[in-house]
Write a protein that binds this DNA or RNA. Structure first.
Lengths: 225, 225
DNA sequence: AAAGAATGATAGTAATACTATTACAAAATG
DNA sequence: CATTTTGTAATAGTATTACTATCATTCTTT
């Protein structure tokens, strides 16, 4: 009885599919809010259970531990971006135009509004910016990668790399530029807020316009043949 | 009675200056080894005390907690890079040449060999690559930044930004490019090892040559006027 | 020789990160 | 309609983590 889109994710990410049950969807919803509020380090399943009128033990039935829950939320986010990019670039022929739309989607993901009530994309976007790289900066990175836990992230990156190759097939670093675009979109939004001297970007009236302009400028220069 | 260079760091990073005592230097030495071995999450002061024939309580006399110890190690690293860049670019006039030397220093920091026996720069470099961004991706980022805990990192970034401006004073994003060069040097070394599809770099015979070439290519294209 | 600082050894506490057991209600199945 | 199965709650328990405190000892400094 779920309405709207169901994002399909690697079953190794969870013990029981949280999108399938009411409790599971509550876990997704409240974990996003709590991680944003407390930061990933201070976030615990006990606090989560408590704030959603449930118990620690119930949360453990869905996710092995908070690390898997984080990877799950990120996978959800990347898959959703993938889907947005597919929609937004539909019927667009020009690869330059496509890349421009990709940049806008990467930076402004939080603005869009799909019909999934248990995910607040705007808060999730903040979580991805602040906690995203912790998913793969662990000692388990190779095992997790082998299990396909980062496949949505890599798929998004490869999709962007493909468009980069369409724009300029001579460009020698399409994959690196693709992952760098994703990283920069997030990093410079974070820098602008917390370490302003690490960037030239300013975020004015809650608008990330300058981040978009910078990424366009970079790709334009780099892919110019 | 310390011989050689003493890296000077913000006293807010520690409770007692670890460079001043034998025990302090042992803490620096073994924490680098242990964080590299266990990863930052599994690393604890108890394990550290144990592996260096001391106690948890003794480590707590030098650092408030493991988060400050991590920031300390990173500050040490950035300050050391700063110092290496100063030496390596001494008497070089051409800003293009300077930027090239900076890129080589960023990527190959582990190759150099200064006279500080309690820091294994090669292992520290791995720690910076794997754990570096965790220092400022926390809920305390603004407070820590206000206390100047990231000043060495920012100073390095600003130094690079200065050279970028010398190369091309019209370039609109010198700070962003500077921080991005640092990030890319680390990220793509990590991707090459753990998430190879996120980059085009391959690390062959333990050589990071390709990372250097990529960063040179990027800066060359971007700063071309 | 006395005072002070640094260290080690030990102990203790609150919170974290789980695991296990039981129990009961709702849903699915035969 | 009876019976498994499934989902959830409640409770308890354990090992580890992240500290803090105390006290004895040793090492320096004056």
């Amino acid at each position: 009885m779920s309405i709207g889109i169901k994002i399909s994710l690697n079953p190794k990410l969870y013990l029981r599919d949280p999108q399938e049950t009411m409790l599971g969807r509550k876990i997704i919803k409240h974990s996003i809010i709590q991680i944003d509020k407390l930061g990933f380090e201070a976030f615990t399943f006990k606090k989560l259970g408590c704030c959603m009128q449930s118990t620690e033990a119930s949360v453990y039935r869905y996710f092995e531990n908070k690390h898997f829950l984080l990877i799950y939320l990120l996978a959800w986010y990347w898959e959703w971006l993938n889907y947005l990019i597919d929609i937004n670039t539909k019927n667009i022929e020009s690869p330059e135009k496509k890349l421009q739309i990709i940049i806008e989607t990467l930076v402004d993901a939080n603005q869009e509004n799909p019909a999934i009530e248990y995910v607040n994309e705007s808060i999730l976007h903040r979580v991805v910016i602040a906690e995203g790289t912790k998913a793969y900066h662990t000692k388990e990175v190779d095992k997790d990668n082998k299990d396909g836990l980062f496949s949505n992230f890599k798929a998004l990156s490869e999709k962007i790399a493909g468009v980069i190759e369409e724009v300029n097939s001579e460009f020698p670093y399409p994959h690196a530029l693709a992952s760098n675009l994703i990283e920069m979109a997030n990093n410079h939004s974070y820098y602008a807020m917390h370490l302003p001297r690490m960037t030239d970007i300013k975020i004015e009236n809650n608008s990330y316009e300058q981040v978009k302009n910078m990424l366009s400028f970079f790709t334009g220069k780099l892919l110019d043949s």
